[in-house]
């Protein structure tokens, strides 16, 4: 099936004017599948890390949200072991006015402001609530171990 114009345009714009700290490029086999990299925001425990994600545009995009998942392991209360992300705009708060770019910016923002009160990974969230300093240290360790070399 032909690729909708919107996807072509979004792809062109993502490549021509990437958002700071974010890159997204379509895979050669499937123009709906994007390889994404997000740089850990400075002043977050993920600073210095480079995070790989996959993003897939389902058939009914943009009426349905893109499916996004972290491929790089990350210690974050709203991201689980499988890399699934707890973010309202990827679920019930999706709007077709949002785009790949805005989704990735939102994920980047989520790295800067973890929300342990709406956890996806209960263990991580509990540690975040009970001992934030040690949680942040664990997140920094994971950044060093998993996000700072070629994985």
């Amino acid at each position: 099936m032909a690729l909708p114009k919107r996807i072509i345009k979004e792809t062109q714009r993502l490549l021509a004017e990437p958002a700071p700290g974010i890159s997204a490029s379509p895979s050669e086999e499937n123009a709906r599948y994007f390889n994404v990299m997000i740089i850990g925001p400075s002043t977050s425990p993920y600073e210095g890390g480079v995070y790989k994600l996959e993003l897939y545009l389902p058939e009914d995009y943009p009426m349905a949200a893109p499916k996004v998942r972290f491929l790089t392991k990350i210690y974050h209360p709203n991201i689980d072991k499988l890399g699934r992300i707890c973010l309202d705009i990827l679920k019930d708060k999706w709007s077709p006015a949002l785009q790949i770019r805005t989704v990735l910016l939102s994920i980047q923002a989520l790295l800067s402001s973890p929300n342990p009160d709406d956890p996806l990974d209960e263990n991580v969230a509990r540690q975040w609530r009970e001992d934030e300093n040690s949680a942040i240290n664990t997140a920094k360790d994971w950044t060093r171990i998993y996000a700072m070399q070629d994985n």
Binding site: R6, K9, Q99
Partner: peptide
């Protein structure tokens, strides 16, 4: 074209962007 962040200027349909 590049340098024209036209998606922010609000002239095209936000769904089809065409």
């Amino acid at each position: 074209g590049p340098g024209q962040p036209s998606d922010d200027l609000g002239r095209e349909c936000v769904i089809c962007m065409s």
